[in-house]
Simulated scan of single mutants.
Amino acid sequence: MPNGSYNPILHVDFSSINDYLEDNETNSSMGEHNSLGCVQILIPQQLFLALGLISLVENILVVMAIIKNRNLHSPMYYFICCLAVSDMLVSVSNVVETIFMLLHDNGLLVVHSEMLQQLDDIIDVMICSSVLSSLSFLCTIAADRYITIFYALRYHNIMTTQRATAIIVVVWLASITSSILFIVYHKDNAVIVCLVTFFCITLVFNAVLYLHMFLLAHVHSRRIVAFNKNRRQSTSMKGAITLTILLGVFIVCWGPFFLHLILILTCPTSPFCNCYFRNFNLFLILIICNSLIDPLIYAYRSQELRKTLQEFILCSWCFGV
């Protein structure tokens, strides 16, 4: 993931260990000017490793808290748990690759080109699966909140545990299968088109749902009041706000990466686009930050999850002492 050299013909190879090892440079947090006058922000490997480890621990805590607390055993939290697993894929791939590079740089590990390629492909599949599954589960969670708000009385009949399980299985199978195909055919521009199209469809789908939820919230609130379900409505709208924050963070963190893909299609040889390409490591840092921020949003917005996490951390600390 943290490459020491820039690959100007990067397609969907999210990480390129071979390029890194062939032309390794010393990364620093300072900007660097090249012959074209572009500013390249170089990221130290230690920062990749630190953020990856923090993100991994956070998401593991979220998954364990949802598993432990029976009050969180509902379709919405099942989807949130899967989103946390998606974030873990990014963290694991980042940690593994960074450790691999640090060991190689210090002469503690000698590898062959075939092994490098295999590891590179596995990491690429993991990251691509994370992209697709994260987008899919954001849509799924948004749809779940939409049903909760506008079909509150029929929610448990519509979103059953069996249906939620089926959705989760389909999303993961589709994400993993698509990721493998994307990596196999990564040299085809059609892969980039598919990724960008899926990203745009996801944003439009979520934007439409959120807009409808907020525009009709007042009308639906009156209906809920008639059935004395004020608290349910408040909880549902709180969930919608949480998902809006999650989507906003996702756009900020993943947007530069997808813009990178779009520019590869539209202006691969333009000097301006090449300057943008040179900061690919910065875009990777933003992706890792997304997987780090998501658990913080869950803990802050969900009182039940926050309480469970606090109890879990406190018990773990006491046990350690």
Rank of each mutant, 00 (worst) to 15 (best):
A84C: 06
F198L: 15
V131W: 11
V252F: 14
Q117V: 07
L153P: 02
L209V: 09
T177H: 04
F214S: 01
I180Y: 06
L211P: 01
R231L: 04
L286Q: 07
L247C: 05
E114F: 09
H73E: 06
F100T: 04
S74K: 03
G107S: 07
A50F: 12
A166D: 07
D124Y: 00
I313K: 09
S130W: 08
S29A: 07
T165L: 08
L83I: 06
F283W: 08
S129M: 07
I183G: 13
F283M: 14
V57L: 11
D188A: 14
R222E: 01
M159W: 08
L261G: 09
Y78I: 00
N59Q: 10
L216N: 14
T269I: 03
Q40V: 10
D105G: 05
A65E: 00
C81V: 03
F137N: 10
T140W: 02
V249N: 15
I241F: 12
R70S: 09
I293G: 07
L243E: 04
L56R: 04
L216V: 05
R223M: 01
F150Q: 01
V170F: 15
I67P: 00
L309Y: 01
L195D: 03
Y155D: 09
C82H: 05
V208A: 14
L211R: 13
F137E: 10
G31I: 06
T148V: 01
A50W: 08
E304P: 01
R70I: 04
I41R: 09
A166S: 07
S270N: 13
Y210E: 01
S136Q: 14
S91W: 08
F214Y: 02
N7S: 12
I99P: 01
Y146Q: 02
V12A: 11
A240D: 14
F280S: 04
H156Q: 15
E97N: 15
N189C: 13
S5K: 07
V252D: 04
I60L: 14
S136D: 09
